[in-house]
């Protein structure tokens, strides 16, 4: 006898998902029993102190990590059941990412760094338009080492947005920026997400001023 899964309403659904790892023979939970629904077009802030498991939760929700227990669904389909390659393909097609550090490929221009995250035939036009909208239109040809930290993070934002993702995952995207630049980057992400949900983790509540909803995480659990 099989039990039917509850019909999920969110774009991302976490069903009692846990992520454990083993440290010197002991089982440690990075996230434990997380049940969370993320709605389309929602800006969800995940707030918590350093070491509370925010990034781990983000990796679970985005399919970068498989839950040890429970499951994570994207539009009703289990991420856990997908192979590594299928999850990678899903990330490229449906998700966008902004990481703590503005990681860019040093040998590619700003434009090319954005372009690689889109498989669309209109990728060139879209990449340029995004960079232009993010105030980088004059610097599309520059290599990462010719850009400031704030500019690099804008390029990362453009890269996250280019595939018109259904969900954007932002892992403390303001960590390497000053407060003013941090606010600007969050604002850009929020303004240009074109209907995609935005899930952002941070320890700085002031960065979540535009969030629709904020959940708190402590010691790997939602509180």
């Amino acid at each position: 006898m099989t039990e039917a899964l509850p019909e999920p309403g969110g774009v991302i659904n976490s069903l009692s998902a846990s992520l454990e790892y083993h440290d010197q023979g002991k089982t440690v939970f990075a996230c434990q029993d997380i049940s969370l629904e993320v709605h389309p077009n929602e800006f969800l802030g995940i707030l918590g102190p350093s070491g509370s498991g925010k990034s781990s939760l983000l990796y679970l929700l985005s399919g970068l990590k498989k839950p040890s227990h429970g499951d994570v669904l994207f539009e009703g389909s289990s991420l856990k059941r997908l192979s590594d390659d299928d999850r990678s393909r899903l990330r490229l097609r449906e998700f966008g990412f902004v990481f703590q550090q503005p990681y860019l490929l040093g040998y590619l221009s700003a434009f090319e760094n954005v372009r690689i995250a889109s498989t669309s035939s209109h990728g060139d036009r879209h990449a340029f338009e995004l960079l232009d909208r993010l105030g980088m239109g004059q610097k599309t040809h520059r290599r990462p080492h010719e850009l400031s930290g704030g500019e690099r993070q804008r390029v990362c934002v453009a890269r996250a947005l280019i595939g018109r993702p259904k969900v954007i995952f932002a892992d403390e995207p303001t960590a390497s920026l000053d407060h003013k630049n941090g606010i600007a980057v969050v604002s850009l992400l929020n303004r240009h997400r074109e209907g995609g949900a935005l899930i952002m983790v941070t320890h700085d509540e002031s960065m979540l001023a535009e969030a629709d909803r904020i959940v708190h995480l402590r010691d790997g659990r939602l509180v």
Partner: peptide, 27 residues
């Protein structure tokens, strides 16, 4: 590739295009 094509003029930026995929081995 895009880098060489992106000529910045004082008035307007020329739109870059990718003729070779940026992640290709040759690039």
């Amino acid at each position: 590739t895009a880098e060489e094509e992106a000529v910045v003029s004082t008035r307007r930026t020329v739109r870059p295009r990718t003729r070779i995929w940026p992640l290709s081995a040759l690039v």
